[in-house]
Design a protein around this nucleic acid. Sequence first.
DNA 1: CTTGTTGGGTACAAGCAAAC
DNA 2: GTTTGCTTGTACCCAACAAG
Length: 280
Amino acid sequence: MSPTDATSLLIHLSTRDIAILESLRSYRLLTTAHIRRLHFAQGHASLAAASGAVMRVLTRLETRNLVARLARRIGGVRAGSSGVTWQLGATGERLLRTMHGEKQRRRYVEPSPAFAAHTLAVADLAIGLYELQDQAVIEVVRVDTEPSCWQSFVGPHGTFEWLKPDLYAVTASGDYEDHWFFEADLATEHPPVVVRKAKVYQRYAATGAHQGRHGLFPAVIWVVPDTARAAAIEAALSADTAIQPELFRVVTTEDFRQLIATGGGTSPDAEPTAPQQTTH
DNA sequence: CTTGTTGGGTACAAGCAAAC
DNA sequence: GTTTGCTTGTACCCAACAAG
């Protein structure tokens, strides 16, 4: 895409259009509902009105090849007609690449259902954070998606390693900042794989690199679909004597918001007070 | 003024799942 | 198996706005 193409395109795009494209760049895949929650949450008379608006905008962007819908429906999570999953279209990818001054083309091919489901689960966590911010429960200081949240480090035996969290976030409530690594678990991985990943977190924590930069090590949160899966992961972690249990927390998607709201992402020694009982 | 584009609101159909 | 409830997507209406 030449710069003139990009600018002629930009004239026809609102700041909200650009914001939608940027979201798709960050999260790779988003459902229509995700985009509504992110960009059509305010200023609409009803949920139905917002839903209509977001579909109109997305279909308009689709005709310009800025966004594209996945052929495969990712369903089963909610009742209702199966939703559309969106990703950047070829033109949208070129436009954002030009805007960000990048040379490397990112390919947006049809992902596998398993990859798509996981990607959407990660996006759901991040959007949940922003919604808590809208409700004035917390303040979102920072959200890093893949691959910018990846951390390289040198392990105990001099080996070069990558820590690849699904999401890194810093939130604030009151005077306290909470730092988080999130793993969106869909109960597709065997517990030993989870334990192995937990040990990567431990090796990264042992380098002290993150603590040196931020003064604390983030809480590592596995967000799982149900209590049975939570029990399975907790059992696998506690069964391994090499695991430091204080680094890790396992919550269901249902309890995710409560955990974020009450905090706990601070390192253990920075935890200011005992959790307070709050009623709603 | 006419026309086309964009986006908001509402009604309704389609589709799924839990409840009956 | 049927009903009920919920959610999503589409069709149609309207208003605001810009370009010609």
